[in-house]
Amino acid sequence: MKDFEYFSATSLQEACSLISQYKDVGKILAGGQSLITLLRQKLISPTCLIDIKGLKELDYIEFDKKSGLRIGALTTHRAIEKSSLIQEKYNVLSEMEKSVASVQTRNWGTIGGNLCSADPIGDPAPSLIVLGAKLKLVSAKGERVVPLEDFFTDYFTTVIEPDEILAEIQLPPPAANTAVEYMKFATIEAGIKIVSTSVAVTVEAGTDVCKDAKIVMSAVAPIPLITKKAAEMLKGKKLTDDVIEEAAKMAASETDPTTDVHASAEYRKEIVKVLVKRATKKAFEKAKKA
């Protein structure tokens, strides 16, 4: 690992001023669960790290009936997994978090750090996108809010500017008659994801008709992929097995996966079909009861 200068920010304001000063050579360090490996492998060699992990002001989970959920960017994965508030209102997040890396990583790693590392196989992004998440980005100059679905631009790349810090993840209140299901597929139980998907289904109250749907995949494109056409095929229809199967096929055709040591591109597409089908069915059944 190369030497670097190290600053431990004591407030968000200080962090913003430090990163605006060092934006060309510096990196923000949160939990570091990806960053430190990258440093060790010399895949990146910033000359300065600004450590924000200790900022209590970005560590919170708050809910308001009208405005919805706000998660501080430095909230750990484990805190989200164990939050009774989240279990009650956004259970899919809690369930999804269980499959994020290992307990040790979830204890130290933060939700904000995870999103900013923009790994295309990351667990949280698909579920957060289907839930309609927005990100609050702050800098010394001010702040802006970006929908999560517009956040990622390429492998390990986001719209975040070099002087910006992700401060908060915002979710609207849970939609009525809606259920969200997260499913992942790997060779070993807790292995590297070959494909994962999050599916949200909203039904017309008291019917079998899908009012709205959203399907987001990971590990099948450089960024979390929203399979819009597949979701469109569900909307306004009674979700029979055939309808779901057709939508799942469409989802597969919308993906553009690559081949790696874990699976070929062709196989990933096959798994997309199975996962979207299974997740949609499950979300649909739950939505009817919601």
Partner: peptide, 14 residues
């Protein structure tokens, strides 16, 4: 291609 424990998967507790 898989010279690490992320890509060379061995059985785990689960």
């Amino acid at each position: 291609l898989n010279p690490n424990l992320v890509d060379y998967e061995i059985p785990r507790a689960f």
